[in-house]
């Protein structure tokens, strides 16, 4: 048997380590994240929005599609908290019901975009050379279009509708994620532990999946959160332009569009859906900022 020579300190550490609960990377992250007050609040606000998206349509006080011609374009009152629109429908109920649509569009489109972008980014970053050149030039082409213009172009091909909005937003999220993931991949790929894994004889798939992907995950999460905000905004813009959700859908962008003609006499018809978009996008951006600070290994407290 090999003689084990441990210093006193090591022996002591060993002893104490048996008792102390291990610090997982997650508990470390959570401790840092709690210090980001704004992000922390945003996080709970977003949880609230998600809950609202699930139960919202069942708990709203008014039917969201039933017109009420006795109460057309009334301002905020005790009965109609956010007033009514041109058909007398309760705006507050419609906003609550619309949460589902906005979150659904934002999450799925960015998720699809992140999925594709992460795949291409990992491949481009790990294999380099020609694969990298082809993928990244493709991304450059897509990034050369202004986002909303590209989305309009894609919808022009696929036709208007919420499903196609999701596809359009997903497609123009792909190059953004590909770039971010590629740059993190390059950084992680050059680390010694990846070299060590190679020297063990691991196959590329294992190296990418077990070592490089987890290393890029923090930047993916940060960008994911930030992109949701802009995806919701883009989806609302497309709906506003009549390319996304169609009336009478309570999509926030479509509601804005519906209130546009009454801006002078009934500003509340546009203000409240606008506020909903504003607060939601802001919450996602703040959460993204906070996550970045909490996940960045360089910022030590």
């Amino acid at each position: 048997m090999v003689e084990l020579k441990l210093t006193k300190k090591e022996a002591y550490m060993q002893q104490s380590m048996e008792n102390i609960k291990s610090n997982t990377p997650f508990s470390e992250f959570w401790r840092k994240f709690k210090k980001q007050k704004l992000a922390f609040v945003s996080f709970f606000f977003i949880l609230f929005l998600i809950a609202l998206a699930i139960v919202g349509p069942f708990i709203v006080p008014y039917d969201i599609a039933e017109p009420d011609y006795n109460n057309v374009l009334t301002g905020p009152t005790a009965e109609h908290w956010a007033g009514t629109d041109a058909y007398g429908r309760d705006i507050f109920s419609r906003i609550v019901a619309g949460t589902q649509i906005s979150l659904y569009v934002g999450l799925t489109s960015v998720f699809l975009g992140a999925l594709g972008g992460t795949f291409f980014g990992l491949i481009a970053g790990y294999y380099g050379k020609k694969v990298d050149a082809i993928i990244m030039r493709g991304c450059d082409v897509l990034l050369a279009f202004p986002g909303i213009l590209l989305a309009i172009g894609i919808i022009a091909i696929l036709g208007p509708g919420l499903g196609n909005v999701i596809i359009a937003v997903a497609i123009f999220s792909v190059p953004v994620f590909a770039r971010i993931v590629r740059s993190s991949t390059l950084a992680v790929k050059s680390t010694l532990y990846v070299e060590a894994t190679k020297s063990i004889g691991a196959v590329p798939r294992r190296i990418i999946w077990k070592h490089i992907f987890p290393g890029t995950l923090s930047s993916i999460i940060v960008y994911f959160t930030m992109r949701i905000g802009s995806a919701i905004l883009t989806a609302a813009s497309l709906s506003f332009l009549g390319l996304g959700a169609q009336p009478p859908s309570p999509e926030w962008g479509a509601m804005l569009s519906g209130g546009r003609d009454y801006l002078n006499i009934a500003p509340h018809v546009t203000i409240f859906p606008g506020l909903a978009i504003f607060i939601t996008v802001l919450a996602f951006n703040l959460l993204g900022d906070g996550l970045r600070d909490a996940l960045d290994p360089k910022i030590k407290d």
Binding site: P25, L192, Y193, I200, P214
Partner: peptide, 29 residues
């Protein structure tokens, strides 16, 4: 043939537990 690296801080993946690190060559082979 295996290698022991110079920098013990950089040659271990910080996201894996010691068990996972030592187990890796066993899984690979």
């Amino acid at each position: 043939f295996q290698m022991v690296f110079q920098d013990p801080y950089a040659s271990l993946n910080p996201r894996l537990t010691v068990k996972e690190i030592i187990e890796e060559p066993l899984i690979v082979h």
